[in-house]
Design a protein around this nucleic acid. Structure first.
Lengths: 124, 124
DNA sequence: GGATGAACATTTTGTTCATTC
DNA sequence: GAATGAACAAAATGTTCATCC
């Protein structure tokens, strides 16, 4: 996974979602729209609703990077043959995720500090 | 000033800078590169260095919106005739700024919450 | 070189279309 | 309609060029 780099403003949506997606798959294998739904529920109270293309993009990227692997399945308990793509961690995932999380922690802290500073400076 | 709208992820750099620029001009009239320098100093410890085109873009926008007005000056104490554009608040500025700050406070809080939630959920 | 601004290029993000079951 | 993915469009941001003193 390309180390997170951003000498800029706040972190990018993609990096943010990547972190959440990895965290989710770590806990439970899932498929695209399922992950999207869960994330939307989590973020709903913050008025944030990611869109499906972002999720698919990231899942594909993580697959290309060898962090996730795809497994086609038929949707459980579904009369119709709805095929889904369930994502699993690979063997090299754990190490990569630890690293990514570590980097992202620094980045999240940086962003929170920048926003807090702003609130402090401007609103007293 | 167009009410801040962003049904999305974190706030945009432009909105962020607009807030800081207004706050600066409120306290002291200034010109483009001067404002940029000051902002860069403020944000340096956060690894954030806005670029000059953003600042100019925003100053022009605020001027067009009637919040700021331009005043061409010659740089103080400069032998050469270096012309600068000093920005001042207009009469309608105070009211507009109060409103914008109010909206941005909500938005900043929202973003901080979203990031804090992430840190909490993922790093325990 | 400092200052301003426009022009351009790229990256990031969001919307729509296509396909399958 | 749910799911996946690609294609496309737009927005946001960053880099370079032009000009002036």
């Amino acid at each position: 996974m390309d180390g997170y780099q951003n000498r800029g403003f706040l972190l990018k949506q993609k990096a943010f979602l990547k972190l959440h997606i990895l965290h989710k798959v770590e806990k439970k294998n899932g498929y695209g729209l399922q992950i999207l739904d869960e994330l939307r529920k989590e973020f709903k109270q913050f008025g944030y609703s990611p869109n499906h293309s972002d999720i698919y993009r990231i899942l594909q990227e993580l697959t290309k990077e060898g962090i996730l692997r795809r497994e086609k399945r038929l949707m459980d308990g579904n009369a119709e043959f709805q095929e889904i793509v369930v994502y699993h961690l690979t063997e090299k995932a754990p190490e990569a995720i630890v690293l990514y999380k570590k980097q992202m922690k620094v980045e999240l802290d940086r962003c929170i500090s920048l926003l807090n500073k702003t609130v402090h400076d401007i609103y007293g």
